[in-house]
Simulated scan of single mutants.
Amino acid sequence: MLSAQPIFTIEAELEAIMSLGRTPVGERRIIGIGGGTVRGQKFNGRVLPGGADWQVIRADGAADIQARYTIESDGGARVLVDSVGLRHGPPEVIEKLARGDNVDPALYYFRTVMRFETGDPSTDWLNRIIAVACGQRLARAVRLDVYEVE
């Protein structure tokens, strides 16, 4: 069961896509994470620059997502985020996303499973949960509504 409301929402600013080209498993891409915000009932803070989203665009058009980045609470606690997921949809919707168009997130599937790691006692509770995020791709950012698996 998921929490009724998101425990927080992450809005991460994205850098330009760096494509490594087609490999035997699909098109490899790296998208740097330049910063952002974290807001919610259980956590407020910011996304620190320096993380990245490593993607493989599969033959069926789906994007396998693996992101690692750091968030910092308003109180200074740093938390490593490890996120693995999947984004797919009709080709015309994915083309609009690639152009940077604003697309209703109900028109495509974008979900990730999130784990957290921190040494700060104020955010220690994150070490002991698994979360699921419902995502939305924006022109130069991603928005993730993060729900705790209870």
Results as ranks from 00 to 15, higher is better:
Met1Pro: 09
Met1Ser: 11
Ser3Phe: 02
Gln5Val: 05
Ile7Phe: 02
Ile7Cys: 04
Ile7Met: 14
Phe8Gly: 00
Ile10Trp: 03
Glu11Asp: 06
Ala12Met: 01
Glu13Ala: 11
Leu14Ala: 07
Leu14Tyr: 03
Glu15Tyr: 00
Glu15Asp: 15
Glu15Gln: 02
Ala16Val: 05
Met18His: 13
Met18Thr: 11
Met18Phe: 15
Gly21Thr: 03
Arg22Pro: 01
Arg22Asn: 14
Val25Cys: 13
Gly26Thr: 09
Glu27Lys: 15
Glu27Gly: 03
Glu27His: 07
Arg28Glu: 03
Ile31Asn: 02
Ile33Ala: 02
Ile33Tyr: 05
Ile33Val: 12
Gly35Asp: 14
Arg39Ile: 09
Gly40Phe: 04
Gly40Arg: 06
Gln41Trp: 08
Gln41Thr: 15
Lys42Ile: 00
Phe43Leu: 15
Gly51Ala: 12
Trp54Leu: 05
Trp54Met: 07
Val56Tyr: 07
Arg58Ile: 02
Arg58Leu: 07
Ala62Asp: 05
Asp64Trp: 01
Asp64Arg: 13
Ile65Ala: 05
Ala67Glu: 08
Arg68Lys: 12
Tyr69Asp: 04
Thr70Leu: 08
Ile71Leu: 04
Ile71Met: 13
Glu72Cys: 02
Ser73Arg: 08
Ser73His: 07
Ser73Lys: 08
Ser73Asn: 02
Gly76Trp: 07
Ala77Pro: 04
Val79Trp: 01
Leu80Ile: 05
Val81Lys: 03
Val81Gly: 07
Leu86Val: 07
Arg87Ser: 04
His88Cys: 06
His88Lys: 04
His88Phe: 14
Pro90Ala: 10
Pro91Ser: 00
Pro91Phe: 00
Pro91Trp: 06
Glu92Gln: 05
Val93Asp: 01
Lys96His: 09
Lys96Asp: 13
Leu97Pro: 13
Ala98Gly: 08
Ala98Ile: 06
Ala98Met: 07
Ala98Phe: 02
Ala98Trp: 09
Gly100Lys: 12
Asp101Pro: 06
Asp101Ile: 10
Val103Lys: 10
Pro105Gly: 07
Ala106Met: 09
Tyr108Val: 04
Tyr108Phe: 12
Tyr108Leu: 05
Tyr108Arg: 01
Tyr109Val: 12
Tyr109Cys: 10
Arg111Pro: 00
Arg115Gln: 10
Arg115Leu: 06
Phe116Gln: 07
Glu117Trp: 01
Glu117Asn: 11
Thr118Glu: 10
Gly119Val: 14
Gly119Ser: 11
Ser122Arg: 14
Leu126Ser: 09
Ile130Phe: 14
Ala131Tyr: 03
Ala131Trp: 08
Ala133Ser: 15
Cys134Asn: 10
Cys134Tyr: 06
Arg137Leu: 04
Leu138Glu: 15
Ala139Asn: 09
Ala139Leu: 04
Arg140Glu: 03
Val142Tyr: 08
